[in-house]
Structure formats: structure tokens, C-alpha cells
Amino acid sequence: MSHTAHIPSHRKPRRSAPKTALRAGVAGGVLSTIAVAGAAGPAQAEPVTRTIEMPTITDGLSTAVAASAQATQQVAQDLRTQAQQNEAAASAAKAAKKAKAEAVRKAEAKKKAEAAAKAKAEAALRASRTQARTTLSAPTGGSPASTAVASSSSSSSSSSSATGSAASVVSFVKAQVGDAYVSGGTGPNSWDCSGLVQAAFRTVGVDLPRISQAQSTAGTQVSLSNLQPGDILYWGGAGSAYHVAVYVGGGEFVGAQNSSTGVVQRSLSYDPPSGAVRVL
């Protein structure tokens, strides 16, 4: 037995025929494919066109856009409405201011006109009284000297104080000084001239006529130079007097003069009377 019988051989084992044939067939197929491709020659590749579809706006987004546009329009409309309202308010305020100024102007003009008419009426009344006194005094033929004497005599006689019923009449009319003058007024807080005289004499039980014309002839005619407290003074003619008052002594009288002054106490020189009657 050889010494090398058990030493393994280092040769590679031979491949089996079937595996070799398979590999040869694969290689041959690949080479055939390459040969065919080479025979066909180089061919230009056609461009590939791909269509990309863009996403469409969904219904929700469309609704949101529409709502936003509507909201913008509403805001614009609100701004226009507010501007119109502001303009209307400014115009109304301007018109109101102008109307107020016009009303004030008219009121002032009316007030001035009333004051002027009142002054004119008072001036006319004074002129009428002066004319009446001039007419009444003309027949007497008195001179300025005699008039002065009469005035002096009147002043001395006026210093006598009232007594009895005359004192009550004087006290009553003095208590009404400051009351309002109202045509047709008979008290207790507003009077006309004859209403005050009638009420004063009623306190002592004497019932006088209501109007000044009748009161100017209700008693005995007395001279203005011989007056006593409680005598009734009148302006105008006896029986046609347009104003009456009560002589209270001291050269003064109390009477309801007019709406401007009301019931006042005045000196005889303020508005000299035409005559006087004595009832008490």
C-alpha cells in the first residue's frame, strides 16, 4: 500500500456537464440579445409626455370665498349708510341751529315792537290827559299866579290826616300797593282803577258804581285845592272820566295805574288829576 493513498488530492473537482451547458446557454442568449440590439442600430427615444391634473377648488372653498365677498360688500354698505346718517345728522343740527337763531331774532323783534307800542300808548294816554286838563281849566281863566296859589293851598290841605271811614279807605288802598293791574280786575290781588276804588269804599259800607265815569259823579265835587284823605280823584271830565284813584293825604294818591306799574302810590305832580269828589 502506497504511503500517499490516504492523502487527499488538491485538484478541484470537475464541474458536471449539465451545469456547464446551462451556463453556456444563458451566456449565448445574452450575447444574442446584444447582437440583435446592435443590428437594429441606435434608435432615438421618443419623448414621454405626462399630463398633470391640477386640483380643482372644492365646494367648501368656493362657499368661503363667496361668504368673504358678501361680508366685504356688507361692510362697505354699512360704511356708506353710516356716512349718510352722519351727513343727515349734521344737516339737521345745522338747520336746528339756524331755526333757533331765527326764533330768537323774531322774539327779540317782537319784544322790541311790544315795548315800542306800549311806550307809544302811554305817551298817547298822557297827551290825552294833558289835553283834557287843559280843556277843563280853560273856562276858569285862572292865571299862573292863581294856579300857584291853588297848588300851595292844596299842599297845605293835604297835610291833614285821615280819620274814621276815610282812614279805613286810605288804609285799604295803601295795602294793595304792588298788586297787578288787570283790566276788569276787582281783587283780591289784581285790580283796575275803578275796581280798586269800589273795593276800598265797600270796606266802610259805601257801594260805589263800578266804572270810573259814574264814580266821578258819585259824591260832591270838591276843589283840588281843598282835598281830604279819602276823596276820589278823577282824570277827564266829571261823568266822562277815564281814570280814578284815592287821595291819601300828603299830596299823594294811590291808584291802579296800568299793566306796567300796577297799583302805585304817587305824588299829585306825577299826574295831576282833573277833579275830585267827596263821598265820606
Rank of each mutant, 00 (worst) to 15 (best):
L268N: 01
A132I: 00
Y242A: 09
L136R: 05
T58Y: 04
T134V: 09
V36E: 14
A127N: 15
V65A: 05
V197T: 09
A83D: 05
A107Y: 04
S171N: 09
A200G: 04
Q44C: 08
A101P: 06
A256N: 00
P47C: 04
S194R: 02
A199V: 06
A145N: 01
R278E: 03
E46K: 11
T220L: 12
Y234M: 00
V75G: 08
S155E: 13
A21M: 02
K112H: 06
A27F: 07
G41E: 02
Q228K: 08
S68W: 08
H3G: 12
K19M: 14
S137E: 14
A88Y: 12
A166E: 10
P229S: 00
S68K: 06
P13A: 14
A132F: 00
G187C: 02
A162W: 03
D59N: 12
A200Y: 09
A214L: 09
Q77T: 14
A45V: 06
K106H: 10
G178R: 03
A5L: 15
T81R: 13
P144Y: 02
H6P: 09
G164E: 01
A238Q: 03
A90I: 11
L268E: 04
A276I: 05
S260F: 14
S267T: 10
D231E: 01
K100C: 08
L196S: 02
A199C: 12
A180R: 12
